[in-house]
Design a protein around this nucleic acid. Structure first.
Lengths: 160, 160
DNA sequence: CCAGTGTAGTTGACACGTCACCATCTCCCC
DNA sequence: GGGGAGATGGTGACGTGTCAACTACACTGG
């Protein structure tokens, strides 16, 4: 904190430290809400949410990993834990013997549908409602412009 | 992602999902840089950085935890790992037998002084340089206003 | 001085994320 | 159609963060 300040100017340091602090507090709050109210982690929520929007409530592992911007390894571990809790299941891909297809179980569907309103309320309480519409718009622009630049840097070749 | 979109309007969803995505990518990049270039985690860096700014290169555990906004438990675990690597040491508090005083070792000082320029460069590369000064200023305002609101909510009683 | 309450810090169990590595399968080209 | 390159997905080890429970000490009122 103090070290950064010597090397970044005031505005830069304020932005960076603000980012770090905001993300520390905000993630903690949202994760706690989700855990206490729904018994889910943010990772669980993201996976379930993506699955419930997919056709047939199922999706290929690699595709899901790409969508979430997770590593395949991370997703595989996550799925193992979720499978043990009965939220998802793995099934064989009909035409590609390597492939696993991730399927939302009934319990998984019930869980995400119950969790979604709580989670949205939590996000409102801890983030959305703390800012003006102008600030939200500005924040969205800034965040996605950072994301785009980081994506370019990370994968300058892929077009799809 | 898709579930949120049904309950937040376009601007709100863009801000929230942008936040989540930015934080995912940005943390990954900065953490990777720090690990590869300096052999440190972000947590290591934060602790060392705070210690090196403290009088006598030492600080009480609870005070450091409050400063970092970490739980005492998290800090204790972190310090155990850092102690094993020789970056810090724990010493007895002269007047409070319960108290541990965290001290930066010589190696810890060398490490943080070597890491700081690399880390600042990484932060510039992955964040600061991707935004205009206006965006940085706006971002700082937004982030700290969220932080203040979350702090109020979490601890409405403490004044010091 | 001692009983009760609060504070400082630690610990164990567990969930999570990363890295490195592996087994398996597909695809393409000769 | 055989062989190598690349993709799919999983695993183990390890560092990290959280919660809950715990030890040990300090402080305060009787």
């Amino acid at each position: 904190m103090t070290d950064d300040a010597r090397w970044l100017d005031e505005t830069e340091a304020r932005a960076w430290l603000g980012y770090r602090r905001m993300f520390l507090l905000l993630n903690r709050e949202v994760a706690r809400d989700l855990a206490q109210e729904c018994g889910l982690s943010e990772a669980d929520y993201d996976v379930l949410s993506n699955l419930s929007g997919a056709p047939g409530d199922s999706i290929r592992l690699t595709k899901l990993a790409a969508h979430l911007k997770w590593s395949k390894s991370r997703l595989s571990h996550q799925l193992t834990r979720m499978q043990q809790r009965g939220l998802i299941s793995r099934e064989e891909h009909p035409s590609d013997a390597r492939g696993a297809v991730i399927v939302l179980t009934e319990e998984g569907r019930r869980t995400i549908e119950e969790a979604a309103p709580n989670h949205v309320a939590s996000v409102r309480r801890n983030f959305i409602d703390l800012l003006t519409p102008q600030q939200l718009a500005a924040f969205g622009d800034i965040a996605w412009s950072v994301v785009e630049r980081l994506n370019e840097a990370a994968a300058p070749q892929k077009t799809s």
